[in-house]
Amino acid sequence: MNASSTTPSVTEVAQKQMKHTCEHHAECMKIIQAILDDEASEAEKDHFRENMDKCIPCIEAYRLEKCIKDSLNMKIVKKPCPDSILNTIISKINS
């Protein structure tokens, strides 16, 4: 008898111990966006790291959002704004 066929893997055991629903999904999504935008505080990052170790929906949401952001960054060509447009915007804001 092969022990590996009856013994669950570490991943399977870990997944059974993890949360499959997130009670604070909206809050977690805000923190994920702040982390990906490099605007999260150290406390928010630490809190999210602790939560991510236990919450499958947060792990999946982080991976998806990061993948989307990385894909967009690779596709977008960044061009400087022409001075004439910039001056027009500034003058309209100041008036």
Rank of each mutant, 00 (worst) to 15 (best):
S9N: 03
R49M: 10
A61V: 12
H47W: 15
L72R: 12
A43Y: 06
D70C: 04
Q33S: 12
P80T: 01
K19L: 14
D53P: 00
K75A: 14
N2M: 02
R63Y: 12
F48W: 08
I68A: 14
E23D: 15
V13T: 13
F48L: 04
V13N: 06
N51V: 04
D70V: 01
C81S: 07
E23I: 10
E23Q: 09
K69M: 02
E42N: 14
I76A: 04
A3Y: 00
I35T: 05
K16Y: 11
E23W: 01
H20C: 06
A34P: 07
K45Q: 14
A43P: 03
C67S: 15
C81T: 06
S95I: 08
E50S: 08
N73P: 06
C22P: 03
K78F: 00
K75V: 00
E65Y: 06
I76F: 01
S95Y: 10
K92N: 02
E42A: 14
E65L: 08
A61N: 15
T11P: 01
C28G: 03
L86G: 08
S5M: 15
E12R: 09
S5G: 04
V10E: 12
N87D: 04
Y62H: 11
P57C: 02
E39T: 12
D53C: 08
K79A: 03
C58H: 07
I93N: 02
K45V: 14
I35S: 04
V10G: 06
K69D: 05
C22L: 04
I76C: 07
S71R: 03
H24G: 01
Q17Y: 09
D37F: 02
T7S: 07
D53V: 05
E12L: 13
P57E: 04
N73T: 03
Q15G: 01
Q33V: 01
K54E: 05
C55F: 02
Q33D: 00
T88L: 00
L64D: 10
M52Q: 12
T11A: 08
I93R: 06
K78V: 04
M18H: 02
I68Y: 06
K78W: 00
V77Q: 09
N51T: 06
E12V: 15
D53Q: 15
M1V: 11
D53S: 08
A14C: 07
E23K: 02
C55E: 02
I56Y: 03
E44L: 08
E42D: 13
S5Y: 11
E50F: 03
E27F: 05
S84E: 15
I76S: 03
L64S: 11
T11N: 00
K16F: 09
C67I: 12
E60V: 15
Q33R: 01
H25S: 01
I76Q: 04
V77I: 06
A40T: 01
I35E: 02
P57Q: 00
D38N: 13
C67Y: 13
P80H: 00
T11R: 07
P8F: 01
S95F: 07
T21N: 09
